[in-house]
């Protein structure tokens, strides 16, 4: 997949779902997911070293809200926050949701996205690198984050990855012009 083909933001139909998604208890759900992942793969978080207690601010620019994440194994915490609540975070990562998800599933290369300004990063470069290398090695699948296994995991992986791929293609084909970027 080339960078150019995946630069787009969420397709309009997906953006319309955002208010619905925002109503869900996303923070507690994602916290449970991370802790479940820590239970299954405790070694994964060791790679972060001292940076596992860092608060990362992740801002999907095409959503109305952002997240703070402390990836501290069984003590991990994810919170849904307002976009301006960056003060207490050591790292701020901003980018289109599909790009950020592409980093998680390993579809996209973090260096390429950063150096080409598709995502932006500020704050502790050391903590960002540790997180980037940890995610790179983790080879996460959607089922890992959802705590699923067996046939259910295979179905979830196929469905979610297929859906993301379709959305990326849609986003690429409907890449907004400069005048639409601010909307």
């Amino acid at each position: 997949m080339t960078l150019e083909a995946t630069e787009g933001r969420l397709p309009p139909f997906a953006r319309q779902l955002c208010p619905v998604v925002a109503g869900l208890p996303l923070g507690p759900m994602l916290t449970l997911s991370l802790r479940s992942l820590a239970r299954q793969r405790p070694g994964l978080f060791e790679r972060l070293g001292e940076h596992r207690s860092v608060r990362y601010f992740v801002d999907p620019v095409d959503l109305a809200f952002a997240f703070t994440i402390i990836p501290d194994g069984m003590r991990s915490v994810v919170r849904v926050v307002r976009k301006e609540q960056t003060a207490t975070s050591s790292v701020v990562v901003r980018g289109p949701l599909l790009m950020l998800l592409g980093l998680l599933d390993g579809t996209l290369d973090g260096d390429a996205l950063f150096f080409n300004r598709v995502i932006s990063v500020s704050g502790s470069t050391e903590a960002v690198l540790a997180l980037r290398n940890t995610i790179e090695d983790a080879e996460l699948l959607p089922a890992d984050l959802l705590g699923l296994s067996g046939a259910l995991a295979r179905a979830a992986n196929a469905g979610i990855l297929g859906g993301l791929d379709a959305m990326r293609r849609l986003a690429a084909s409907a890449k907004p012009g400069p005048s639409q970027e601010k909307s």
Partner: peptide, 8 residues
């Protein structure tokens, strides 16, 4: 020798 890199 970068954070998060290399092998145990």
């Amino acid at each position: 020798n970068f954070p998060g890199l290399n092998f145990s």
